[in-house]
Amino acid sequence: MKKVSIILLLLFSLSTFSQNLEVEYSVSENTNDAILATSTIYNLIISENQSAYFNNVNDSIQQFKYQNLIFDVEKIGELKQVKLSDNHYAYIKQDYFYKNYTKDTLIFNEIILNKKVFVGEKINLFNWEIKPKSDTLVLGFKCQKATAKFRGRTYEATFSNEIAPYGGPWKFDGLPGLIVSVKSLDNYFVIEPRKIKKDGKTLNLITNIYENKKVISWNMYKNTFEERLREQLKKLKSISEDGEVGNIKITDKIEDLELPEMKF
């Protein structure tokens, strides 16, 4: 195993990579409640030291593995609420992860109680450990593997410098090659490539849609999320017959918000 010297690798890569690249991924969430499991198509575009990773919200209803159980879809704030049973609701939003490699900037949108917020982080969030070179092939490209622990989960990624010297879906980045696939070791979160198009004339231009937005830090987002959740729990307690809400855990998030179990 060896740890990646991320900064030096990126400085070298930024001066050598200028082609357009498009990757289509299948993203699966195997949620703790199986009825809420999803499989979604996302697209990654890399061009001119920027990247954009996004879904097509118009196709979002098709993502549910048990979509035959859907009996109601309602627009609530900036979300679509999908009802799959009397006790199971899911929410859909338009995701857009923008990266600027020259500025080491990652910006994305999140939702706090139906209100959209914009969150900024550094690109290099992962402390990867690269496994020895292997002959793993993904869509015909020779790949290596790497692992990293991140906010409550351990991930294994495959990456290839035959495709690009950097880049990846979602927040995944910081390896000396394009991150082609990712899975969490608990199989909760799986990203697999469907198509890779190099040197293409992309129809989707990369833009920083957050340029004039108020961007908050990850810690501010996390703290605000917890505060709003506690407020909602207090409201539920006040209207319940016995005044008890019980214990609530956040279990179905892609990343661990590191919030404690909440009791009232």
Rank of each mutant, 00 (worst) to 15 (best):
G243T: 01
A157Y: 00
D173M: 03
S184W: 01
K222T: 13
S181F: 03
E241A: 15
S134W: 06
S184L: 05
N212H: 13
M220E: 15
T158H: 14
K197F: 09
E162N: 09
L137K: 15
L205R: 12
G168C: 06
G200V: 12
V180Y: 02
N127D: 15
K183R: 14
S240M: 04
V182I: 15
G200A: 09
P165N: 06
T154Y: 10
E244Y: 14
K122R: 11
K142F: 09
P176S: 08
R230Q: 12
V138K: 06
G200W: 11
P193G: 03
I206R: 04
R194F: 08
L175V: 10
N208V: 06
S160M: 06
K133M: 08
F150D: 05
T158N: 10
E211K: 13
T147H: 10
G243A: 01
S134A: 15
E121D: 15
W128I: 00
S240I: 08
D242S: 15
R151S: 05
I163H: 00
I179T: 01
K237Q: 15
P132S: 10
T154N: 13
F150M: 07
I239K: 15
K145A: 12
W128V: 01
K197V: 13
I130P: 01
K234S: 13
N127C: 09
R153G: 06
V190F: 01
K131I: 09
K198G: 02
N223E: 13
K149E: 13
S240G: 04
K214H: 15
K201W: 08
M220L: 14
S240Y: 06
K171I: 07
Y188D: 03
V138H: 02
T158G: 07
D173Y: 00
I248P: 00
K213N: 14
G243Q: 04
F172C: 01
Y221V: 05
K235A: 12
E226G: 09
W170M: 08
V245K: 01
K145R: 12
S184G: 06
D242M: 14
Y155E: 02
T154I: 14
G177N: 00
R153C: 05
G177Y: 02
K234N: 14
P169G: 07
L203E: 13
V138G: 03
E129R: 10
S240K: 04
K142P: 05
V182S: 00
V138M: 03
K195C: 06
V190M: 03
N187S: 12
E211I: 09
V182K: 00
W170I: 08
N208C: 04
D242Q: 15
E211S: 12
N208L: 04
F225S: 12
Y221C: 02
L175D: 03
K214F: 11
Q144E: 11
T202L: 14
T224P: 09
E156Q: 12
F150G: 01
L178A: 07
S181H: 04
E156C: 08
V215S: 09
I196F: 02
F159T: 03
D199H: 14
G140V: 02
C143Y: 00
N208D: 14
R194C: 07
V215D: 04
L236W: 11
W128H: 03
K213V: 12
V138C: 08
F126N: 02
T207P: 02
E192D: 14
R153F: 07
P165C: 06
L139G: 01
